[in-house]
Design a protein around this nucleic acid. Sequence first.
DNA 1: ATGTCTTTGTGAACGCGTGCACAAAGATGG
DNA 2: CCATCTTTGTGCACGCGTTCACAAAGACAT
Lengths: 264, 264
Amino acid sequence: MATGRTHRPATRSRGIPEATVARLPLYLRALTALSERSVPTVSSEELAAAAGVNSAKLRKDFSYLGSYGTRGVGYDVEYLVYQISRELGLTQDWPVVIVGIGNLGAALAGYGGFASRGFRVAALIDADPAMTGRPVAGIPVQHSDDLEKIIAEDGVSIGVIATPAGVAQQVCDRLVAAGVTSILNFAPTVLSVPDGVDVRKVDLSIELQILAFHEQRKAGEEAGADSARPAAPVPPPAPRATAAPAADGGRKGPDGDVPAVMPA
Amino acid sequence: MATGRTHRPATRSRGIPEATVARLPLYLRALTALSERSVPTVSSEELAAAAGVNSAKLRKDFSYLGSYGTRGVGYDVEYLVYQISRELGLTQDWPVVIVGIGNLGAALAGYGGFASRGFRVAALIDADPAMTGRPVAGIPVQHSDDLEKIIAEDGVSIGVIATPAGVAQQVCDRLVAAGVTSILNFAPTVLSVPDGVDVRKVDLSIELQILAFHEQRKAGEEAGADSARPAAPVPPPAPRATAAPAADGGRKGPDGDVPAVMPA
DNA sequence: ATGTCTTTGTGAACGCGTGCACAAAGATGG
DNA sequence: CCATCTTTGTGCACGCGTTCACAAAGACAT
């Protein structure tokens, strides 16, 4: 799971719960597949199975959008595809910039799932002059000096950050200052942004750590009870005299995280 | 946000809530950064700010692990790093295989965040014979014919799927049959797995779609009220005579999704 | 030793999300 | 036109997660 929204604590935007919004793309994908097989209608049961969710949940989700089903029959596939697309804002074109063209940035640039959903890679941006002009996935990389100009000219409102963690906040600041109001962050850092800007983050290592937790549980289910096998349990240490004030200069935050996503 | 667990509906594993488990890696990252700056202790307030969460939430999260703080002082950084690492199972070595070495698979193979958290890339596997033997991120790619052998020999229990959507379920089945019990799925498909196997998925395009939803809302906040600007609202269509049975052959599911993550 | 000050740990209230179960709606057949 | 059958849409209850607010615990100064 890529996690967390940032601001907008629980403000269900106009009656559509966040949890529902997060599932709409799932339904859309399943519906698109059905559409390509020319299936005219689906029941909530079938569609729920295809999307991997509960059918009651799916019906309730759709009920937030309106009454688009027909009792005794199901949902019209094409119509539902359109309605969900419209609700998600995919009927319009969304120019996107990707900043940080390392391995990950390059993978994102070539990802087919974007274009097919109305997202258009407007520009690839990297700080390395050696990258400038080199085509990645058919798009020439531009230097980060031109970041503001690119965003302004193309009217970009969505930015993807695939830089090393150390520079992610700076990049974020520049994107926001230039007019970007939605950011997808792949750098392992907590970004701070002003109100009105949405941030979603994807941290690959976090997902693995969650899996490891469950894996460990499965392994230790019927084994050694609780005795610490590793060497040093380290008893609760004697606290130092003065608590470190940890004078953090403003909001620069914990940028210097260990590994960078990409050496860019 | 990478989303969703699959099975184990809400079974809080041994008293630690899922939501808390999902945040532990976040705390660990912030603590590691502090540790590298040789900060001896942190208050819940400071650490919460660094991790981007509420301080009360953080304290409650830690309370599930035990009473590791000192009132009036805060938490000992090193000790907490150790405790969280142990809880997440990061004190042991986790061999991981990555299947599907396209752009994304290659990016994952070179991702520094894995090794530093106790994850070791045991093998890279791809179905393309042309890839076999070629080193990616210093690790030679092996052919998928040897998948079962590799998993058995290395005792791999965690698999990463970065293949095109069309083959993800087959790959998943082979991984599970070979003994893998945790899967991180990057392919845009719903994987079906037997009980006891954990699946987490990361869908890049879903994250963007969620951002687009909020972006659209922000844009249309004070504009045209509800009148559909796009061309075809498509009135609720006249339903066909017979509902399509959509005879789905078993659980193969909606594999043929539009774009593949990687042409591998 | 006593008082003050800081910070943890948690009881309790609240809100969101989920899932059950069923009534209403419509299709279909006679 | 009526009966039956399917499937939606939703009222309701329950449980998890979040947040507030505060008492208890310990550090520190005098």
